[in-house]
Each structure stands twice: as C-alpha cells, then as structure tokens.
Amino acid sequence: QEVDTIELTRQVKEKLAKNGICQRIFGEKVLGLSQGSVSDMLSRPKPWSKLTQKGREPFIRMQLWLNG
C-alpha cells in the first residue's frame, strides 16, 4: 500500500523528540543507516511512488517502529 512519507517522517520526528532519542541511535538500531542518511530522509522524504523497493524499506521500518 501507498505510504504518506511526509506524514510518516513527521510522526517519527515527533516520537524521537518526545522520547529523547537521537537520530544517530534511531538510524543505527532501527533503520540500519548512518545518521546522515536518516537526517536526509527525515528532512526531505521522497514520495512513495518515486522510491525503489530498497528505498521504501526504511519507511516500512519506520512504520513498524511507530506501530510497535
């Protein structure tokens, strides 16, 4: 299904801030990505339709983390 990447990243940033989790830790533990990649993804999320399967994976992980 289509994911609203802008809304998703907004919710993730909100939860990170609320729980005092830094992007570096979130990136390493949840997404398996560097802090730079995570920062870029959270500040400039690409539309779901423009992402490859590999590009979608971190957003799917974010969704699971939010719902977890």
Rank of each mutant, 00 (worst) to 15 (best):
S37P: 07
P45G: 03
L51E: 00
K46C: 03
Q53A: 14
R10P: 07
R24N: 13
R24L: 05
E28K: 10
T52F: 07
A17L: 08
G55S: 11
F59W: 09
C22W: 07
L31H: 03
L51Q: 00
S43C: 08
M62I: 03
Q1C: 11
N19V: 14
N67W: 11
Q53R: 11
K29T: 14
T5N: 05
L42Y: 02
K13V: 02
V30Y: 12
K29N: 15
W48C: 00
K13L: 03
D4S: 04
M62N: 00
K50C: 11
K50D: 14
G32K: 10
F26G: 01
W48L: 02
W48V: 01
T9N: 03
K18G: 05
L31G: 05
L51T: 01
Q63S: 06
P58W: 13
Q23C: 04
I25E: 15
E14Q: 08
K54R: 11
S49I: 02
G55V: 13
W65I: 00
E2S: 08
V30W: 09
I60M: 11
L42A: 03
L51V: 02
L31I: 04
G36N: 13
L42G: 04
D40E: 14
E14V: 06
E57Q: 08
G32H: 10
G68I: 01
E28P: 08
P47E: 11
V38T: 15
Q35S: 14
L31K: 05
D40V: 03
E2T: 10
I6D: 04
G32F: 03
G27L: 09
L8Q: 12
E2V: 07
S49F: 06
Q11D: 04
G27S: 13
I21V: 08
G27H: 07
Q1G: 14
L66A: 01
L64R: 15
K15N: 13
R44K: 15
Q53W: 07
L8H: 10
K46I: 07
E57R: 05
R61Q: 09
G36W: 13
I25D: 15
L31T: 02
L31R: 08
P58I: 15
E2I: 10
I6M: 14
I21S: 02
K50S: 12
D4R: 03
K18W: 04
K54S: 11
T5F: 05
P45S: 11
K18L: 07
E57K: 10
S39W: 04
R10M: 14
L42C: 04
V30G: 15
N19R: 15
Q63G: 10
Q63R: 13
L64K: 15
L16H: 13
R56G: 01
P58Y: 10
G32L: 04
K46D: 07
R44Q: 05
S37R: 10
S43W: 02
K29I: 01
G68H: 02
Q63I: 06
G68N: 10
V38I: 12
I21K: 02
N67P: 01
V3T: 09
I21P: 03
L8Y: 10
T5L: 08
V38N: 03
W48I: 00
L66M: 05
L33C: 06
G32W: 03
L33M: 12
L64S: 15
I60N: 11
W65N: 00
Q53K: 15
L33I: 15
W48R: 01
T52Y: 08
L51S: 00
R61W: 01
V12K: 07
I21F: 09
Q35W: 15
K54I: 06
Q1R: 11
V3S: 11
T9R: 06
S43F: 03
P58S: 10
D40N: 08
R44W: 10
T52R: 09
Q11M: 14
L51K: 00
S34I: 04
I21N: 04
M41V: 13
D40K: 03
P45V: 08
K13F: 00
Q23A: 07
I25A: 13
R24C: 06
C22Y: 04
S49V: 07
L64Y: 13
L8T: 13
K18M: 11
M62P: 00
K29Q: 13
L51A: 01
S37N: 12
L64C: 07
V12A: 07
P45T: 05
I6G: 11
Q35R: 14
L64H: 08
E14S: 08
Q35G: 13
I21G: 02
K15E: 11
M62H: 00
N67A: 12
E57M: 06
F26P: 01
G36P: 11
G32D: 03
R61H: 02
L8M: 14
T52Q: 06
K15M: 08
L16G: 12
D40C: 06
G36E: 15
E2F: 09
G68Q: 06
G20R: 11
Q63C: 02
P58N: 14
S34G: 08
R10N: 14
I60F: 06
